Amino acid sequence: MYDYCLKQKDGATRLTQQSGMELTDIRLRSIVQFDPIKKSFEQSQNLKYFRQPNDLEYPLDLNRGYDEFTHRCGVFPDPFDQVQHYLMHVDQTKQVLQQTDFILHRHTLRIFIDASPVVPRAYRFQAFRFKGCIFIKLLDDMDNEAVLRHSYAFKARQYLLTERLGEDPDTDTPIDQRMQQYGMFSAKIGQFRLLYTGEVTGLSNTEPLGDLTDQQELDKCRQTNIRVVREQISWRSTFRYDVWVRQAYLSGVHQLVVASFDDHGQVVRPIEVESMETLLKQSDRLNIGNRVQRIHQFLEMISQKLEDLDNPAVSVRFQLIGENLVFEEALDTEFIDYVNQL
């Protein structure tokens, strides 16, 4: 069993372990809000805080307000648009690119870390190199089903997150699933330096933070992830546990919150709250060290494939099938206009 420990150093989250590779220096670099009408990003100045409901608030009705719930229905922000927004607003864009080896989406990292021969689903990607930095884009569509069950996690967030510490949450405003907040993260894996995007949920901080456009305030963020599960399911013994904890690990999340709902969408049992440090220490099967090593191997293979290609007009496509990367020939790419704006 690995000995895990979450540590804060210079604003960065570090997960140390006795053996195997690790993701280090995970830092939240910016937070943006997606506008589904303009299909653009705006800088976000704050995140909501987690609060534990009191006994009198139960049951929490996850069906409440569903008639006014707006599903994504195919409206997803392009991670590359978020990257572009970040690079165009950050100081010294060229320096950031020079100091970065890979730019990608957290979902891609999660696919890499979850790669398994037992579930040999094929994922398609496209990658190109620009000024020494490799951009990786997942080509598969996200889940677009508009079903009641998919609204529960977002309603749970509304019950459990509040704008200001000590205040009751707003549970009456209609939820628009498209209007989520996204973070830009930086991290290191072996010799590679990464920038990647991913949705952010809320904070477990017990003291109010200031303007989150300030890096010093961002470094104080202690993220929390909120999940929902049927109460008949022991989530700690299913694949959900592995997926949730690994994804939280990739973002340096400090706390996992789980709401169990019954057949009527009611949360009647107290919310479960676990620190990531505890979850990582308790589970042998997560195998984080070896799985991070696999991510590193995938990145090495992609880097070698693009070693002689530093041209945004040319990219390579590849598939991840089980634990194997299968590369296709180089081809023309649509990214030339994208990088011209950088």
Rank of each mutant, 00 (worst) to 15 (best):
Y338H: 06
A12C: 05
E272D: 12
I134W: 04
I295D: 04
D219V: 10
I134D: 01
Q232D: 15
D143H: 01
D141C: 06
Y338I: 08
V83S: 07
D143S: 09
Q8T: 15
P59W: 08
E42P: 00
L15Y: 15
K39Q: 15
L286Y: 06
Y249D: 07
S204H: 05
D176V: 14
L286G: 04
I288E: 00
S237V: 14
Q84V: 01
A330G: 03
V267N: 02
L165K: 11
F128Y: 12
N287M: 04
M1V: 14
P270A: 07
Q319C: 05
T197E: 08
L218A: 14
F327K: 12
E42L: 07
A153P: 05
R124M: 08
M142I: 00
A187K: 06
R27C: 14
V32P: 00
T162A: 15
T24C: 09
F130R: 05
W244C: 11
Y196K: 04
L256T: 10
W235S: 07
F185P: 02
S251H: 02
L56Q: 12
R240P: 00
R193T: 15
Q304I: 04
Q191T: 13
S186H: 09
L15K: 01
Q126G: 12
T171P: 00
A115Q: 07
R129T: 13
L320P: 02
M184N: 05
T171S: 05
Y86D: 01
R227N: 08
Y249C: 06
L6M: 13
E199W: 02
T13M: 03
T70P: 00
I336C: 05
A12K: 10
S186W: 03
L47F: 02
D3C: 09
K7H: 04
S283E: 12
K155R: 15
L279A: 10
D67T: 14
Q293W: 13
L299M: 12
E145T: 13
S40G: 14
T213P: 01
S260F: 00
F130I: 10
E22Y: 10
F135Q: 01
D219G: 15
G289D: 11
R178T: 01
H107C: 07
V83I: 13
V200K: 02
N46V: 05
F112S: 05
Q181Y: 07
V268Y: 01
D242E: 11
Y66A: 03
E145L: 12
D170K: 09
Q43V: 14
Q18I: 15
D168Q: 15
I175W: 05
V339I: 06
V314W: 03
D168V: 08
S204Q: 05
Y4F: 15
F318W: 02
H89Y: 07
D91F: 04
P120E: 14
L195W: 01
V119Q: 12
R240E: 09
K137M: 06
D78N: 14
R121I: 13
F192P: 00
G202C: 11
Y49Q: 06
C221L: 09
F102V: 05
Q52R: 12
T13H: 09
Y49F: 08
E145G: 07
Q33R: 14
K94F: 12
